[in-house]
């Protein structure tokens, strides 16, 4: 890493998140003797899988100046579809495919509404958040589906390596690697950054911005559906409110990871660090026996902290640059003025 790249990293949001992660690990270690345990880490990974999977799609969505608030409801709807099919003796593979298709269709609906009608994705996905949850409700009502095939519910505990790394862990690691390569090393990723940083430049350079966005919404819905499968196999049951409130966690992870809500900036690396941070904090709260409501509040607090930190880092950086230049002109030094932007 060159020295300029090093300085850029030191001033970045990602670095701030890494520091927070270290602090969180130290604090939780002090608080609980059970934290520093390989089995616990395996558990944290398992608990973070669904959030992480959806965050992999949410990161590029935020980069491209969109947002998907319907992911929790999409997950719920997909889980309900899976539960209904699997508990009615539909072959497992067919049920899985139908579930993934449900998620993809949900994402397609979001994407088309946003691009075809030029609507704000915040409002569209707020609407579909209610719509998808309502559909899930309408399908199963207040019952809980528990009659799932054993071959499916057992897959969660099937280990890939030793007794710590499960198959879902491996799948997630592969998905994260693929997402990182696509976003940061491929032409698609490059176009995503242009579409988010300067949408008009992208359009003028032949980037099909709308198509990219639809693709990302479909990816978001699809990953939410896959997360629904993971969650169902972990919890071994399905209810209409499965995954509700998940959008908040996903958003927290992505923003905490340094993605800029105004688009154009964000990394998979940052998102993964933030995922670990949220996982550690939640694990700490679980070890400390904090109830659900309080955990949600802490996560919300983390979200607010990360946004405020982003604003503060940006302001500090700009002010430092301005102060340097002002000092130069106050000192009367000759300088070549540059046109304003």
């Amino acid at each position: 890493m060159s020295s300029r790249a090093a300085r850029r990293f030191a001033f970045s949001h990602e670095a701030f998140t890494v520091v927070l992660l270290v602090v969180a690990v130290v604090v939780v270690t002090q608080l609980s003797p059970y934290f520093l345990d390989a089995q616990n880490f395996s558990q944290i990974a398992t608990d973070s899988l669904e959030i992480g999977l959806i965050a992999l799609a949410m990161t590029p969505l935020i980069v491209v100046r969109e947002i998907d608030l319907s992911v929790g409801s999409t997950l719920g709807l997909a889980a309900v579809v899976f539960g209904e099919l699997a508990s009615h003796d539909v072959p497992l593979l067919a049920a899985v495919l139908a579930t993934v298709a449900t998620g993809a269709l949900a994402g397609l609906l979001n994407g088309l509404l946003v691009t075809r009608f030029g609507l704000s994705s915040i409002v569209v996905t707020l609407g579909t958040m209610a719509l998808f949850r309502g559909l899930a409700n309408a399908i199963v009502g207040d019952q809980t589906i528990t009659t799932l095939p054993d071959s499916f519910t057992a897959s969660d505990t099937r280990y890939a390596i030793g007794t710590l790394v499960t198959i879902p862990h491996v799948l997630f690691a592969l998905a994260a690697l693929a997402a990182a390569l696509l976003l940061h090393r491929s032409t698609v990723g490059r176009r995503i950054f242009f579409a988010g940083s300067s949408p008009d430049v992208a359009t003028h350079s032949g980037v099909r911005v709308d198509r990219l966005k639809v693709g990302l919404f479909v990816a978001s819905g699809t990953l939410a559906a896959i997360a629904a499968l993971f969650m169902t196999s972990r919890l071994q049951s399905v209810r209409a409110d499965t995954g509700s409130g998940l959008e908040l966690l996903v958003l927290t992870v992505v923003l905490l990871g340094g993605a800029d809500i105004r688009g154009g900036r964000g990394t998979i690396f940052g998102t993964l660090v933030a995922l670990a941070l949220v996982g550690v904090v939640r694990s700490g709260m679980a070890l400390g026996d904090l109830p659900d409501q309080a955990r949600v509040a802490v996560v919300g607090g983390l979200l607010l902290l990360s946004i405020c930190a982003g604003v503060a880092i940006e302001a500090l950086r700009r002010r430092a640059a301005e102060r340097r230049t002002t000092r130069r002109i106050r000192g009367g030094a000759e300088l070549r003025p540059t046109p304003t932007t």
Partner: peptide
């Protein structure tokens, strides 16, 4: 009157 934006000088005395 002078004005600086970021690192650029828009107005210089």
């Amino acid at each position: 009157v002078s004005k600086v934006f970021g690192g650029t000088v828009a107005l210089d005395h």
